[in-house]
Design a protein around this nucleic acid. Structure first.
Lengths: 338, 338
DNA sequence: CTGGATCGTCGAAGCGTTTCAACACGCTAA
DNA sequence: TTAGCGTGTTGAAACGCTTCGACGATCCAG
């Protein structure tokens, strides 16, 4: 492997000149720059990442903590990951993937200076990682909202607004008996932030709209979905509007409703909260509130990068939910027809 | 951040002694070791990854190239990834995730010495990355089999054997008209290795068993699956045994068969090639050949690690397919009942 | 005793960059 | 003419670690 000194020798300049050509941090005359560049690709020179990290304390790597937890939809996680990785590359950064949900990986990459910054997914309401990143020297962006986002940068879909929006939509189209089929019990037990926020928004809106809204946890399996549907329709047979916030369970919920003879889009209105591609690959195109996972990943990287240059204050960005009507929802019993 | 010199000073030893305590490459007396260790965690010392990489030319990072291509099942990819990441951690390595399918990332991490080794997924028959890794100084393991695995280390399910096994099973249970519902057309167009290998095994076995076996490509969407099922049953209505090698399409294939009144497990036998958890989360438990994705990821790391220590010869490991009978297959028309 | 191993520790030379202070040069302005 | 300035380039000092060769001490065999 050629070193920067080899390049310098080949170009007849000093090593620092080569370095400045590469970094652009000092002006270099056109002819010199040309000689250096020619030498670089004649030798196939690549800077040694470790040496660079040592000298500059910049690694051009960011860490992505994506705990692979039970109950979270893997395709959705991957959309976040894809957003993060591709955007990071646009800033000339690579991504170190951490999947353990403990705190040791965090400590290792931050205090070992392996990364310049961190993006953390799947935040719980009282997440043990949060105090650590607050203390780390690397800037961090959370995908999701912890209990106390004080001094932290966060980005997420505004799930509270999404909950409200879903209810408002159903109410507006004439539904007064509404239910949420939500996250798996494990997720709720962990107090995963997004699940709780959606429920809060939903309850608030139901209350202020004067409609009933019950909530069923739901495993992402066929059996779990069937059970959720069955208990829901047993305890509240008057339900005509269902919000499903569980990508894995969604197809099974629809299948069970069909088995029970409920025609989605006619008898029963269903609003999904999920990525658009998931909404579109169901048995019928779903009315849905988009979870723009890839965008959120991208934004997380943008935020982390602005904090990397210059001492920006922390900010939390909540993306406004957008509801798109498709074929799974219709007017309900209380609809006012004109 | 404390440095190794701080630790040495605090413990009253030389920096090299601290280094040897950490690496264990030279014997250190018990009392000295104890003093050093006390100093280490009093100061909260962590070696600087870049400095270590520079001095030792070891980064303790491996690259994982997992192109996020259209047509490949994301949950399955993630199983590979999970296997790789967790096993890498057991060897004290972290994972750098590359998702671009071009060759630039490969070049960057190898010639920049960012990683000690590579694991590459989703190999095409004539993959442009293969010549590059053969030239790189870092050992590499491919998940999948290129056209010419000469001098390369590879690991995968033995898809050819899986194709044969699936056919043999159907033949043995009395089916003479067999079909494969396979990968999406894009995957075939890329000559993705595993898809072609399964088809080859299937055709060979069909030929030598004297049964017919047609092949349908199949998009992983509801529409694509319906289309595949429809054309299959239109052109070969006598089909009683179907092999599905497409995780994304599987549920939709089953749904379409049901819609058309074919009772899977009675009229129609279906064998899936997919991870067991996918096989179990369908409308009925599927007879399947397991794709042990996480295991394969783990094995890939094992192989890469043995090649990292000592100059091992390259090897390719093909895991023997295992078929598990469940409820989606039954005896066919030609079965000999006793 | 003496000579040679063995054990534990140390000093110093790298590893390949970045970056700071300094300098040479040609200009312009006084 | 000279002081002063900006432009382009350089030398050398970090950055924090690993590892090689060397060295004193201890031990055992002869």
């Amino acid at each position: 492997m050629a070193t920067i000194d080899d390049v310098a020798k080949a170009a007849g300049v000093s090593t620092s000149t080569v370095s400045y050509v590469l970094s652009g941090k000092r002006p270099i005359s056109a002819p010199t720059r040309a000689r250096v560049e020619r030498a670089i690709d004649k030798l196939g020179y690549r800077p040694h990442a470790g040496a660079r990290a040592l000298a500059s304390s910049r690694t051009n790597v960011i860490a992505l903590m994506a705990p692979l937890r039970v109950g979270v939809s893997v395709p959705v996680i991957m959309q976040f990951v894809a957003g993060v990785v591709t955007r990071a590359r646009e800033f000339d950064h690579d991504v170190l993937l951490l999947t353990q949900d403990d705190v040791s990986g965090l400590d290792r990459v931050t205090s070992g200076s392996m990364v310049d910054a961190l993006v953390m997914m799947d935040i719980e309401a009282d997440d043990p990682r949060v105090p650590l990143v607050a203390a780390a020297k690397q800037p961090t962006v959370l995908i999701g909202l912890p209990q106390d986002p004080e001094g932290l940068s966060c980005v997420d879909l505004d799930f509270e607004a999404a909950g409200r929006l879903a209810v408002r939509h159903l109410v507006k189209t004439g539904h007064t008996d509404i239910a949420l089929i939500g996250s798996p019990p494990e997720v709720l037990r962990r107090h995963t932030a997004f699940a709780e926020r959606l429920m809060r928004g939903l309850r608030d809106q139901a209350k202020s709209s004067g409609v009933t809204a019950r909530v069923e946890a739901c495993d992402s399996t066929p059996a779990g979905a069937s059970e959720a549907v069955d208990t829901l329709l047993a305890t509240a047979p008057e339900t005509t509007g269902i919000i499903v916030h569980n990508e894995g369970a969604l197809p099974h919920v629809l299948a069970r409703l069909a088995e029970r003879g409920a025609v989605v889009g006619t008898d029963m209105s269903v609003v999904a909260v999920c990525p658009t591609d998931v909404a579109l690959s169901q048995r019928i195109p779903m009315t849905s509130i988009d979870l723009p996972a890839e965008d959120i990943g991208r934004v997380a990287v943008d935020m982390v990068m602005t904090r990397l240059g210059g001492e920006q204050p922390s900010e939390t960005r909540l993306l406004a939910p957008v509801l798109t009507e498709r074929e799974s929802s219709a007017y309900g019993p209380a609809a006012v027809h004109d």
